[in-house]
Write a protein that binds this DNA or RNA. Sequence first.
DNA 1: TGTTAGCACTCACTTGTTTGGAGTGCTAAT
DNA 2: ATTAGCACTCCAAACAAGTGAGTGCTAACA
Lengths: 342, 342
Amino acid sequence: MEELDERKVKILNAIIRTYLETGEPVGSRTISKYTDLNLSSATIRNEMSDLEELGYIIQPHTSAGRIPSDKGYRFYVDHLLENKDKEISDMKDFVIEHTERMEQVLKQVAKMLAQTTNYATMITTPKSVRNKVKFVQLSQVDEEHLLAVIVMESNVVKNKMIPLAEPLDSETLLKLNILLNSTLNGLSIPEINLGTISRLKEQAGDHSDIIGIVLDAVAETISQEELEVYTSGATNIFKYPELSDSQRASELIYALEEKQQLATLVTENLQNENTGIQVYIGDESPIQTMKDCSVVTATYELGDGMKGSVGIIGPKRMDYEKVMSHLKELTSQLDSIFKKPT
Amino acid sequence: MEELDERKVKILNAIIRTYLETGEPVGSRTISKYTDLNLSSATIRNEMSDLEELGYIIQPHTSAGRIPSDKGYRFYVDHLLENKDKEISDMKDFVIEHTERMEQVLKQVAKMLAQTTNYATMITTPKSVRNKVKFVQLSQVDEEHLLAVIVMESNVVKNKMIPLAEPLDSETLLKLNILLNSTLNGLSIPEINLGTISRLKEQAGDHSDIIGIVLDAVAETISQEELEVYTSGATNIFKYPELSDSQRASELIYALEEKQQLATLVTENLQNENTGIQVYIGDESPIQTMKDCSVVTATYELGDGMKGSVGIIGPKRMDYEKVMSHLKELTSQLDSIFKKPT
DNA sequence: TGTTAGCACTCACTTGTTTGGAGTGCTAAT
DNA sequence: ATTAGCACTCCAAACAAGTGAGTGCTAACA
């Protein structure tokens, strides 16, 4: 298959751009005027016919204009998109009064992104690729409960209540605390292995059982850093007629509500060293219900080895240019946004 | 205005019930057969005409059946609803593997309720009407950060990072901890007043400034027990044609996404000693965008003075009977559901 | 050989008209 | 007081016709 010559590319580009704007099938006449090629609509028609044969555009029905196919969008995103990197309103200032809870920050970011882009958005909690334990403390809360507080290098705090048969005396507690801290401090999850554990238990002597429970709790707590996903702007999809019939809308909103699926979409990105921006067009998305949408995701990194994901879900004819530069901007700022509070 | 005689009531009842089932305007003929009154459609017509004049039912257009008006629903809910208290699938068992985080539990409850009722649901975190401090602890996490951990009587744990100019020595820390615990322990929020505060500061001596910061943090943390609201089953509204045109659906889902509004809907209930089940029909709801829906809320109580709210949002023709008994069942079980974990 | 003008054809969409049926209100008879 | 009967209303579905945007093809042109 011989590839597209320059003129075809120009025409394809014109088609897609105008379609992105209007959302209506675009006809030969329109292109003939819009471009500076000075070609008659007839010529354009011939070229469009070729483009359709090559699979870049589709005719919804016989006597309608053409709309881009998934392949067309793909080509557009891969080759036609100039990286303008326009400057974008500085989010850092706009966004956040210091809330200490990451949850709040994430929700706010999602919301703001949804507002500025007019698409549905999602963001995951950063996942500790290599997060270290910074501080551990056990406290006797009441007769029957021990509270384990774990602070990670990233200043994420986790709590875990541990039921106890009978209270520990304060001396033991102190000993355990010192032991835990001196051993675990600075270790990342993979480093807390059987060796560490058995050594710990040994040193705990009488209370190895408690250490066991605590360690389990710690491990669980740490690893239970499941990706949480926050979404916002779900209703934005109603702004795009091609998505807002109740069948599709329902499915989409359901997918946004059931965050679990979204997580899967994003995890693979985190696994791979896929640091850049990922674009899923239509069927390319692993989530079936999103086959009528495009999904753009980006990973952000928090310096201290935490990685998370931001994503935008919109119609196929989304403004890729704006979305991608927004995401690029955002991911570069998230680090400092998170650092500022604490 | 002379009130409804018995026959009118029966007819109204029949109209509403069949409308709840079908969702279509119901005509005289239908009623004539459905009821055991053995009346001809003509008679029914006369009665219906009366009922319409009294405002209990409406004719969407001249030659259509009748549908209940808000007033009709109101009458139905207030007088016609027998409290069957049918037994309902036991949620306690169904629901919850022990997750220690209340958030998880609430999300699950909302989800399950949405699944069994086929309406949209919401649930708030329990609010401490009279929640007491059980345990406080300051820990030196690193050079520049103090971590305050606060455990409430209800075993809710809150963390607060406090930035420090320079580290405290461990002796001072111990002193502060003892001081805080002995003073605050068992106090509820209103009891931590200026008196307590100044006494505390006095006793803290050199470190009164730190106590100040800590107390602020504690107060903020405690009072910042803002109602969080979790929703689920938003997409259920698409199951009811009268709500699923994109205009309405969009507004509704937006309202569900913007949980803030929902909170307001519910708070007033918590304030009042309104312990029972509250039904808002159409315009009765304080949230404007829900004027086409009915909202049923119930408050649950957790024994230790925590109160929260569960709600169901559905079409006006929701199955009030089922919904109300579900809610009644649920609220009575929530206490033990929460107690079980820890 | 590439480009263009012209023309017939297609097909969704709109508008107007028709028809059927469900439902009502009224009246007269029981 | 109830009911049968009938005329009337009005929505909804079906159908017809007109409109217009857009295409494909062909023949003429540079």
